[in-house]
């Protein structure tokens, strides 16, 4: 540690991890369905992909968490994204490629990827 700038850089890097331990109500929540059906359909790589994207892009206000089965097992892996003040968006039949696009378009640019949502699939 040679300089204060170096310390601040390290601080910013780590605070991204530790921020998870703050009780907060704002921020974006990515919830991955991880019941047996979800895991069998490949939810775990999807969750890892989200974690990687969040880490790579230093998105400090995003938490990735998991939940149980929401009943549409045939459409797993399912991911729901909660943005403060917005309706939740449900993405279905997720895979790792879709994750990158959702993070870029939905989480960062606030435009949900309509074609991956449950509405698009069911029509």
């Amino acid at each position: 540690m040679k300089s204060l700038a170096e310390l601040q850089q390290l601080r910013d890097q780590i605070s991204q991890q530790v921020v998870l331990r703050k009780d907060r109500e704002d921020g974006i929540r990515v919830v991955v369905g991880m019941a047996t059906c979800g895991i069998a359909a490949g939810a775990r790589p999807v969750m890892s992909a989200f974690l990687n994207e969040v880490s790579k892009r230093k998105l400090s206000d995003v938490t990735v968490t998991q939940t149980g089965c929401i009943g549409m097992c045939r459409l797993e892996p399912i991911v729901e994204i909660y943005m403060p003040g917005e309706e939740k968006v449900t993405y279905v039949k997720m895979n790792e490629e879709k994750v990158a696009r959702i993070v870029a378009e939905h989480i960062i640019n606030k435009k949900p990827v309509a074609e991956y949502t449950v509405g698009a699939v069911q029509e």
Binding site: Q17, L20, R21, L51, N52, V54, S55, V64, T65, Q66
Partner: peptide, 10 residues
């Protein structure tokens, strides 16, 4: 750096 989805504090 690895980002974890959950932290268990003991």
């Amino acid at each position: 750096m690895n980002i974890y989805r959950s932290h268990v504090l003991i």
